[in-house]
C-alpha cells in the first residue's frame, strides 16, 4: 500500500429534484439522491439511462435544467476543486505520461518543488512508473486509463468520479484498473463509478444507484441489490437480459 496522497475523506452528496433536458429531450427526471462521504457507489443502468449525464452534472460539467446538487452543503460549482472526473474516453495531452500528470498539478498550483515527489507517488500508485517518459497518446487503452486516473488524482480530489473506466478493455487491464480504484477508495477518496458491468459493480461498490429511463429505479446496498433487486429492469440488468 502506498502512502496517502492527501487527507482522506470525501464529501457527502445531496441531490434534490434534479432534471436535465437537452434538445427537448428529458435525460434525467426528478433525481433525489443522498450519498455519504466515504466508500464506492456504482451508478449502473442500461445504455441511455442517463448515467454519464448524471456524473457530469454531479461534477459541474453540465448545468441542471432544474434541481440542486450540493457537496457537503456547497453547490457543485464551489466544490469542483475537490472533485475529479475521469471521462470514458480519456483525451490525454500530446506529451509524456509524466508531463500529463505534471500539467494537472500545475493547474492546481502545486509548487514546482513539490511536484517531483508527488509525481513519483502517483506513478507508483497507478503502476505506470515504467511509462513515465513515454508519449501518453500512444499507450494502450488500459495504460491510458491509468494515466487519466493518475492525472485526476494529481489534482488532490476528495471525491473521484469515474465514467465507465474499463469499457473496451481486456480482462488483464480491467483487473489493473479495478485494483487501482480499490486502492484509491481504501486510502480515503470517495469514489463514484458509472459502469455497465454488473460484475464490476458487485466487486467494487458498497451501494448501487440503478438508473432507468432517467430516474432512480433503485438505490440500495450492493449486496441487497444483487440478491434481491426490487424492479424488473434491475433484475433483467443483473442477469443480462435485453430490455427495450
Amino acid at each position: 500500500m502506498t502512502e496517502p496522497r492527501t487527507a482522506p475523506g470525501g464529501m457527502a452528496l445531496t441531490v434534490r429534484g434534479l432534471c436535465f433536458e437537452t434538445g427537448g429531450v428529458r435525460i434525467l427526471d426528478g433525481i433525489d439522491l443522498d450519498l455519504g462521504p466515504a466508500g464506492c457507489t456504482a451508478i449502473i443502468g442500461f445504455n441511455g439511462a442517463g448515467k454519464s449525464v448524471l456524473l457530469r452534472l454531479l461534477h459541474g460539467l453540465l448545468t441542471p435544467t432544474r434541481g440542486s446538487i450540493h457537496w457537503d452543503g456547497a453547490p457543485a460549482a464551489q466544490a469542483r476543486r475537490k472533485l475529479a472526473l475521469v471521462l470514458q474516453r480519456p483525451v490525454l495531452l500530446r506529451r509524456s505520461v509524466a508531463a500529463n500528470i505534471r500539467y494537472a498539478m500545475a493547474v492546481r498550483g502545486v509548487p514546482r518543488a513539490a511536484c517531483d515527489a508527488r509525481l513519483d507517488k502517483l506513478l507508483a500508485e497507478a503502476r505506470i512508473a515504467h511509462l513515465a517518459t513515454r508519449p501518453a497518446r500512444v499507450l494502450s487503452g488500459g495504460e491510458q486509463r491509468r494515466v487519466a486516473i493518475a492525472q485526476a488524482l494529481a489534482t488532490a480530489p476528495t471525491t473521484l468520479l469515474l465514467d465507465e473506466p474499463t469499457t473496451g478493455l481486456d480482462p488483464a487491464a480491467v483487473i489493473e484498473i479495478e485494483g487501482l480504484i480499490d486502492r484509491i477508495r481504501s486510502e480515503g477518496t470517495r469514489v463514484l463509478l458509472v459502469t455497465q458491468d454488473p460484475g464490476q459493480a458487485r466487486r467494487l461498490a458498497h451501494d448501487i444507484v440503478f438508473l432507468h429511463h432517467g430516474r432512480i429505479a433503485e438505490h440500495t446496498a450492493a449486496a441487497a441489490f444483487f440478491t434481491q433487486p426490487h424492479s424488473e429492469p434491475a433484475r433483467a440488468f443483473i442477469v443480462g437480459n435485453l430490455v427495450p
Binding site: L61, L87, L93, R108, T155
Partner: peptide, 20 residues
Amino acid sequence: REYDEPLRALGVSGWRRVAT
C-alpha cells in the same frame, strides 16, 4: 473540440486554456 471536456474537467480556462 477535442479537449473541451478534459480541460473543463481539470478546471482549465482563460489564457491557460489558450496556452494549452
